[in-house]
């Protein structure tokens, strides 16, 4: 399935490395990535393909959340359909 990862918080070194390492370790392919920094406030959106991921979605979610807590950011992963259904007819 395709999922959207969003990372929001204060900018610092190693955010992308921290997230992408978890993704690479779990065979998750990044399809698209975009980030902006507004007054030290970092937001990143990634579209990923979790098809080959062996880990349960819930475990992956917890793993990313834990990483976020470790580096002081909020990291979440959600099924892409929630965004599609809200904004596309």
């Amino acid at each position: 399935m395709r999922a959207v990862i969003t990372v929001i918080g204060k900018d610092k070194i190693g955010i992308i490395a921290g997230v992408t390492t978890i993704l690479a370790d779990n065979q998750i392919n990044i399809l698209d990535i975009s980030q902006t920094i507004l007054q030290d406030f970092f937001t990143m959106v990634m579209i990923v393909d979790t098809e080959k991921c062996q880990m349960k979605f819930e475990d992956l979610q917890n793993r990313l959340r834990a990483k976020g807590e470790e580096i002081g950011l909020s990291i979440r992963i959600q099924h892409e359909d929630i965004f599609n259904s809200m904004h596309n007819i």
Partner: peptide, 12 residues
Amino acid sequence: MFNYNYIMETIS
């Protein structure tokens, strides 16, 4: 492919 603002709007 995806709209950054839409995603942020939903999250917000």
